[in-house]
Design a protein around this nucleic acid. Sequence first.
DNA 1: CTGAAAGCGCTTACAG
DNA 2: CTGAAAGCGCTTACAG
Lengths: 326, 326
Amino acid sequence: MSIQKIARLAGVSVATVSRVLNNIDTVKPKNRERVLQAISESNYQPNLLARQLRTARSSMILVMVSNISNPFCADVVKGIEEEAEKNGYRILLCNSGTDIQRSISSLKLLSGKIVDGIITMDAFSKLPELTTMIDRMPWVQCAEYADDGGVSCVGIDDIDAAGFVIQHLITRGRGRIALINHDLSYKYARLRERGYKMALERQGLTYRAVEYASDLTFCAGKTAMENLLRGERRPDAVFAVSDTLAAGAMRAIEEAGLSIPDDMAIVGFDGTELSEMVSPQLSTIAQPSADIGRKAVGLLLNKINNPDSPAERVVLDWHFISRASV
Amino acid sequence: MSIQKIARLAGVSVATVSRVLNNIDTVKPKNRERVLQAISESNYQPNLLARQLRTARSSMILVMVSNISNPFCADVVKGIEEEAEKNGYRILLCNSGTDIQRSISSLKLLSGKIVDGIITMDAFSKLPELTTMIDRMPWVQCAEYADDGGVSCVGIDDIDAAGFVIQHLITRGRGRIALINHDLSYKYARLRERGYKMALERQGLTYRAVEYASDLTFCAGKTAMENLLRGERRPDAVFAVSDTLAAGAMRAIEEAGLSIPDDMAIVGFDGTELSEMVSPQLSTIAQPSADIGRKAVGLLLNKINNPDSPAERVVLDWHFISRASV
DNA sequence: CTGAAAGCGCTTACAG
DNA sequence: CTGAAAGCGCTTACAG
């Protein structure tokens, strides 16, 4: 079923059909009527491929997340959706699972013109091949840093936020503070670790213990905490770089027969609803998730509409939420 | 940058370029070499729109979920991704947010030929307009029932599972069992409620208390439980139709100063990791989430490859996980 | 083994 | 206000 058949059915040209399809109001009412009639009779649906090929725009943007199970990602995506919709764009989600093949295949949706732009939340700074693949096309990194000067990014000051957490724990009398970090291929992970170390140094504390979680899951957090508890000098506080990791750590602490916060204080990161779901409730760094998403869309649309505009780096504010886990 | 430019650069025809792009091995090595050379020099990327328009296939399927924050959805999606990938398909995710406009716009990706098929997890049985919109195109309902005979679906026996939970609570000495259900536009919600009522009836219990959550969130679960606790005859057990709702209910119970399971037993549904993250850990009905997803892909691909094959209804097994919350 | 040509289903100047 | 025609970037019989 194509526009041609509709034209034949309605006894007009394809141009006229196209015009009523696109709400161009120069069409004579009678002709419009006949076209509409033909469309509904034949249950015609326009072929978007042909349309997008012709107009060279799709009004769709692709959002690539490494793991849809991460509630922080979901929060950012909500902001993205809201702002995109406000501007007449639809979003498509791709779950990369940090798999390089899948990421490449997703980026082909951009280079292949299926979408007009892409927002990523993954660690791409380490993958120059991907960077060249989508060259100078509209791309913004979200909640993660872009090393490549050509791509815009939006996030928070991770060093600062991590430093604040450590300082806060020290003020509350903790002296052996461990870190449960994410894979260091993420720049934000490197920055938070730097914030952790700088704050300890500043206070003259020498205890250091860092565990790396392979992904941001409950399981990985639990395993990381179990490793920390096996160490010779057990920490009296843990800072986890995501609420999900923190939740996993809490389970490990509980299973070890320790109590929170008496034996072990714990602080998470992201400020997701999950931090309220666990017991005791979790102190955490709240990121402006929806704002990060909204801002990312703003940067992306700007790039789509002005391809030559320079890349921007936006830093938003975070805040600390104090709860019973410290 | 198009196939034409590459052809000119390499001194061959577009047909030859297309052949090397598609790994057709009749191309003479020397020509292949020159084409490959031209491609890498110009950083050419094929236009997928043109390709898909021409071949009438995309090897992509769309997955529509009502809420990506729901961990059960995420689990199902994992199964879908796995099976799709195994068959050379990519998946695109759309977060409908139960918004009708967004759902329509997503379905246009199917009718507009951007994707080859669609898997939905939303309540579409009540929306005949959508059903006619995508007519007889490849579509399967996942973890929800399709009333329309033309669409395949895969799920579990919800009446049975709900009945089992109620029976179990009764056996454990509970007599006033409440239900926190989802919006009744979902058929699974109607079935689980029927299972709840049938089981109570069978045992001659007269207490009934049902609250409806507008969505499957922690917040909605908490509010629902608060309403139940305000009732004149307080329940001594609650069955929530999702782990997320149950987690919210647990928070309300805790805030009311009641203890689980002594004052109030609680059972969730889905068997997501969340049920292990709360304290005490949650008894729940485990759905074969990944299998549901995998099976949905199987049904969909069958429909894509054999458009005239009849719709199928697949029912998979569930099992009960007993934990400290009962 | 290769190329010329048709065609997928649209949109959009252009001419009338 | 409308239509004929060109063209978006591919793939694929077909002829050679």
